[in-house]
Amino acid sequence: MAMYVDQQPLPGWEDVTPIPQAECENPVARIAYASDYETAMDYFRAAQASGELSERALELTADIIDMNSAHYTAWQYRRRCLFALNKDLAEELSYVRDVALSNPKNYQIWYHRRAVVEQLGDASTEIPFVDEVLQLDAKNYHAWAHRQWALKTYGGWEGELEETEALLTADLRNNSAWNHRWFVIHNAGVAVTAEAVAAEAEFALRHIERAVHNESAWNYLRGYLVDGASFDKHPQVKAHCQKLLAEHSGAADCAHLHNLLAEAHEQEGTEESLNTAIELLQKLRNDIDPVREKYWDRRIARATAKLERLVCA
């Protein structure tokens, strides 16, 4: 294909015929590219077409990524160049660090980082790198996913629980930190014994005492008790909640507290406990959380059905 009439060759690529974008006639949603992007892409397509894996192709991918960091084809070609040229991958990681810090919410960067670390076979840089990104945004989803991948694949669990504690000290409502705590407890290779669950429940309740309306802490606590159906194995949780309800200044309008008590009573499943659960759910529906009235209606209906089955049996 011919070069555009007015296009200047890209320095260092004079020997190559650029390949324009194969746009159809009258395309829709056409982007009016800046000329440097268009030129870079024309030569990138030419390099791709000839399969050129070279220093200059590697540099070209960086130019494109600089203008459009979501260009997954350029990232993929970059990996091919890196690995074919046996480039210093530690250097690549520092390049990725720079791109990531200015563009932390991009899938391609994070996958690239994984692929480079895999090739390197050494993930020792990854926790410090993730920490750096979390300093900018402690809830960055990609950063947490990367951290969990690195831990699962390469280990290095020491200090992880302390890390979640430090982040929760900074903001005890950081749900990503709570989720990570769950991840560490369940994946670090240590058995999740009844004692461990009790300790985690205690941990959550301590945070709940400090900020009773913090949903993250409640969800964490709930996770251990509801789907595992194990309120009876940890009676101290219900007792603690009852004490909170009676004594804590913020308890009266705390939906999560009322809900957890309702779930504890539902799990007990006696006529009396089901009646208590229904009462709590009605309070949630009518007074505490009427915005979610339809949700509470469903819960009330389910608890009532359970009660009816019990009474009829």
Partner: peptide
Amino acid sequence: KGLKVLPAGFVALDASR
């Protein structure tokens, strides 16, 4: 209007047309 020509700033969506 979006189906017509998009300004150069849309380059971030060049891999998402």
